[in-house]
Simulated assay, not measured.
Amino acid sequence: MKKGQNICDVESCFLCKNSLEEWKPAISAHKTTYKVKKGEVIFKEGDPVTGIYFVNSGCIKVYKKWDKDKELIVRFAREGSLFGHRGLGKGGFYPISAAALQPTVVCYVDIAFFEATLKVNSGFTYQLLMFLTEELKQSERKMRNLAHMPVKGRVAEALISLQNQFGITPDGFINIDLSRQDLASYAGATYETVFRMMNELVNEKLIDLSGKSIRLLNRDELLKLAQDIVFL
C-alpha cells in the first residue's frame, strides 16, 4: 500500500459521519490514508491486528480460507464501510483476509485510537453495534445456505446480492467487474460448478453475459431459485 493524500468524505465515511463534530480534528490527526492497487492484499488471515480500515473509494473483498487453495468471500466493503473489525477482541489476529477488487483508497486508524473513539462517541458505538448485528445476520444466512441451498440457488442469490449492493450500469449490467473465480468464492462453490450453473442460467434466459459483465433478465425467477431451500 502507498500513503495517499489525507482526504476524507465526511458525509459517507462510517467513522466521521457517526462521530461527534468535536472529535473530527482528532480523527484527522490519527488517521492514515492509503492507496491500494487492484488485487493488492491489505492483510491476511492470521496477521496480527494493528487497526481498523474505512473505505473512502473503491471496493474490498473480505474472505476466509476454504480448503487448501480456495477462499470464501464473506462480504464486500464499499465506500463508507469498514473492515478489519473482525480482529477485535481476544486473540489479536485477523480471522479473515482483505484485498482490493479495484483501485481503492482506505483510511486507517490504530486500535488504541479506535477504542478511544468508541468510549467518547456513543453514536458511533451504537451504529457500529447495528452494523455488526446486520453482518451477523448475513453471516448466519450464508452458513445456512451453504448447508441447505443447491448451488444453482446460491449462484442466483449471489447475483441478486451483487446487483443490490452495486447497482447496474446504463446498459443494465451489474456494476462491478468480478471474476468468475470471485463469483464462485462468493457463492461458496467451485469455479467449475459455477461456470456450469451460469451456462444453465443463460440457456434458461435468466441472465445475459458479456465478457465478465452479467445482466439479470428475470429477477423474479432468480429469486425463486434463491428461496428454494430444502431442509434435510
Rank of each mutant, 00 (worst) to 15 (best):
K90I: 14
K90V: 13
K90N: 09
K90Y: 07
G91I: 15
F93Q: 09
F93Y: 14
F93D: 15
Y94S: 11
I96F: 13
I96E: 15
I96Y: 14
I96P: 07
I96D: 12
S97G: 10
S97Y: 13
S97T: 14
A98G: 10
A98N: 04
A98T: 06
A99L: 03
A99M: 04
A99N: 02
A99W: 02
A100L: 09
A100F: 09
L101D: 06
Q102R: 14
Q102T: 14
P103N: 10
P103S: 07
P103M: 13
P103Q: 08
T104K: 10
T104D: 10
V105D: 08
V106W: 08
V106G: 11
V106T: 10
V106P: 11
V106S: 01
C107L: 15
Y108F: 15
Y108K: 08
V109Y: 01
V109I: 13
V109R: 01
D110G: 15
D110L: 12
D110H: 08
I111S: 00
I111H: 03
F113T: 02
F113N: 04
F114A: 02
F114M: 11
F114E: 08
F114Q: 01
E115P: 15
E115L: 10
E115W: 13
A116S: 10
A116C: 07
A116G: 13
A116T: 14
T117F: 09
T117E: 03
L118D: 02
L118R: 09
L118Q: 11
K119A: 09
V120E: 14
V120R: 06
V120W: 04
V120D: 06
N121C: 07
N121K: 04
G123C: 14
G123M: 13
F124P: 00
F124Y: 08
F124R: 00
T125F: 15
T125S: 15
Y126M: 05
Y126L: 09
Y126D: 11
Y126C: 12
Q127W: 13
Q127R: 13
L128W: 00
L128S: 03
L129E: 03
L129P: 09
L129T: 12
L129M: 14
M130E: 06
M130Y: 07
M130P: 00
M130V: 04
F131W: 15
F131Y: 09
L132P: 05
T133F: 07
T133K: 09
E134A: 07
E134S: 05
E134Y: 15
E135F: 05
E135I: 02
L136R: 08
L136V: 04
L136A: 02
L136M: 08
K137P: 06
K137Q: 14
K137S: 12
Q138S: 11
S139W: 03
S139D: 01
E140C: 12
E140W: 13
R141D: 05
R141S: 01
K142V: 07
K142Q: 06
M143R: 07
R144K: 03
R144D: 05
R144S: 07
N145T: 02
N145M: 11
N145W: 05
L146K: 03
L146S: 01
L146R: 04
A147R: 10
A147N: 01
H148Y: 08
H148F: 09
M149L: 12
M149I: 02
P150K: 06
P150Q: 03
P150D: 12
P150H: 03
V151T: 05
V151A: 05
K152L: 02
K152C: 01
G153Y: 00
G153V: 00
R154C: 03
R154Q: 05
R154F: 01
R154G: 02
R154Y: 08
